[in-house]
Write a protein that binds this DNA or RNA. Sequence first.
DNA 1: CGCCACTTTGAGACGTATCAAGGGGGGTGG
DNA 2: CCACCCCCCTTGATACGTCTCAAAGTGGCG
Lengths: 230, 230
Amino acid sequence: MTDCSTCVVRNRAICASLDAAELAALGKMGRKQKVRHGQTLLWEGDGAPVVANVLSGVLKLVVSTADGREQIVGIVFPSDFIGRPFGKESPYSVTAMTDAEVCIFNRNSFDDFAGKHPDLQQKLLRRTLDELDRARHWMMLLGRKSASEKVASFLLEMSERLSGQGCEAGALNNGFELPFGRQQIADILGLTIETTSRQFTRMREDGLVDLPSRREVVINDRAAMMAMAG
Amino acid sequence: MTDCSTCVVRNRAICASLDAAELAALGKMGRKQKVRHGQTLLWEGDGAPVVANVLSGVLKLVVSTADGREQIVGIVFPSDFIGRPFGKESPYSVTAMTDAEVCIFNRNSFDDFAGKHPDLQQKLLRRTLDELDRARHWMMLLGRKSASEKVASFLLEMSERLSGQGCEAGALNNGFELPFGRQQIADILGLTIETTSRQFTRMREDGLVDLPSRREVVINDRAAMMAMAG
DNA sequence: CGCCACTTTGAGACGTATCAAGGGGGGTGG
DNA sequence: CCACCCCCCTTGATACGTCTCAAAGTGGCG
């Protein structure tokens, strides 16, 4: 049993739709679990017996080909939802990109609970619709954009999604720390690590960004970046 | 007012969750509308005042860049749902690829109705989750597959989705008629029309498929096709 | 029969992948 | 505290695949 009333994502996760009594009932079904950096929570193609909310950390959703190519199809931040309700098997792997903490539920129990709580289901629907929009925009990026456009789009989206949470909102928008290395950025953008690296270098040389360290990015010229993003 | 009880997609669309009285209430809000081949129902970025169910025909969801490149991010068949509930603006354009007929609703009215009918909302959630899975698999295709893998994957998926509906189920699975031309296939796969055409030609030369006409495809060697799809 | 839109084919340019070495930077052990 | 090592990142040279530009071919329809 978990005490949801003090949960760090109490007001942002789908649980926000529940009152105290409902929350207690849900809390009985769930448990907190730590996930280490690099650890995989769900495997593509396996039966997916659990769903979860992310409390802290960042996880990736990955689809792979038989010969080992990987495409990251989603990135999950705190308060986001993980897993496939109403589905038999997981359509992708879920792996932690940082140490993380999740609030985990048995899928069948969760499905039942959701069926009895329309507000929760609506929150889940809204989230899923948002995810679908994001995925579809990413399809445009993957199918039609050049390497430089991909990297620019990526940095802009990351500066938005990362500033939304935790950080000292506002002012510092232009500087942020990526929770991934170059290879993972490449897997997000459908590029190789070399091409990704070259694009970063060129953007630095052109003065569009500063790169104080491997994972830090400062956007100097947001307008030019947006132009480059296509 | 529309009589939903005789609707051709009565049992397949999200309306299937409603009883006679609810259906009558929904019918009052909706109206049938014909959409011509090539006509656009919703524009990317515009306020999206409507949602709809597809009764007949095929429509595409398109995202475009400022300079005119297009990526098809979804294909919509009869009984599928169109539009963005709970959203301010449409994240993509919706255009008919054939003459089509849709059952159209004011979005706000539909949102209200959905809020009062959890079963309908659950159907919508399940559909949205399925769409999201499909979109994510398409991301892998767009980001990581070669032209030949893309075309093979496309033909296999189309043979499934097209045989699911209408047709004399089963036997004829291997032959089907595509509802799109080469350019639109290219826009689905993130390729140019020339590359797409060359892949079709090669697959015909290799005996993998027959192409009795521009839009007809017969898969001769399904196993080889699946191997080629990656 | 001839027009038109769509498709196929060809030749060449371009961008990204691939293969192969060289740098860092951060953490560990001495 | 320094040095070393390992992993990740960068850089370079080349190959390959897809795009681009151009033109010829095909099928449907008036």
